[in-house]
Computed example of a mutant assay.
Amino acid sequence: MKTIISTARTVLAIALLSTLAVSAYAGAVDYEFQPVKTELPTGPESEFAVKIVDKRTGKPVSDAVIFETRLDMAPDGMEAMTSKVDALPSQEPGVYKFKLNLSMAGGWRFKMAAKIQGEEDTAQGEVILKAAD
């Protein structure tokens, strides 16, 4: 009987510690992608910046690794119309800059995926932009 009680206590302790360990870490949903500006000029040299923010603290997230970007005209019903995105250097912590080729006026969707230091899951976000002549 003592062995059963001891085993039950051990299992309960492990389960409790596992729950606490999991809840101590943030998940990919704890990050927000905020545009610095949403209205941009058309053309091949439009500069765009996104700030990645930890929702729990409100602080910018530096040193994220952006490994996937996509720019398309999904807001105007033309998801197949994509355009080039080039990364640019940024001097501001937590701000990630890009050069976009906004070939025509209208609504554009900018999607990105990032690996956040210390996070297992990939953080993903999208921002809707407006390009004007």
Rank of each mutant, 00 (worst) to 15 (best):
T38G: 02
T38F: 00
E39K: 13
L40D: 08
P41W: 06
T42E: 15
G43I: 13
G43V: 13
P44W: 09
E45A: 13
E45Q: 15
E45F: 11
S46Y: 11
S46L: 09
F48M: 11
F48K: 07
A49R: 11
A49G: 01
V53Y: 05
V53N: 08
D54W: 02
D54P: 02
K55T: 10
R56V: 05
T57A: 09
T57Q: 06
T57G: 08
T57D: 05
G58I: 10
P60N: 01
S62Q: 09
S62G: 06
D63N: 13
V65Y: 05
V65E: 00
I66L: 11
I66S: 12
I66A: 10
F67P: 04
F67N: 15
E68T: 01
T69F: 13
R70G: 08
M73R: 14
M73F: 07
M73K: 07
A74T: 04
P75S: 15
D76E: 09
G77K: 09
G77C: 07
E79L: 12
E79Q: 15
E79M: 14
E79F: 10
M81F: 13
M81K: 14
T82K: 15
K84Y: 03
K84S: 06
K84R: 08
V85P: 08
D86A: 06
A87C: 03
A87N: 04
L88K: 12
L88R: 10
P93G: 00
G94R: 11
Y96S: 03
Y96W: 09
F98K: 07
F98C: 04
L100T: 06
L100C: 03
L102F: 01
L102Q: 01
M104D: 13
G107I: 05
W108S: 13
W108T: 14
R109N: 14
R109S: 15
R109I: 05
F110E: 04
F110R: 07
F110I: 12
K111S: 15
K111G: 12
M112Q: 14
M112H: 06
M112D: 05
A114C: 02
A114Y: 00
K115M: 10
K115R: 15
K115F: 02
Q117P: 01
Q117R: 00
G118M: 03
G118V: 02
E119D: 07
E119N: 11
E120N: 05
E120A: 07
D121N: 13
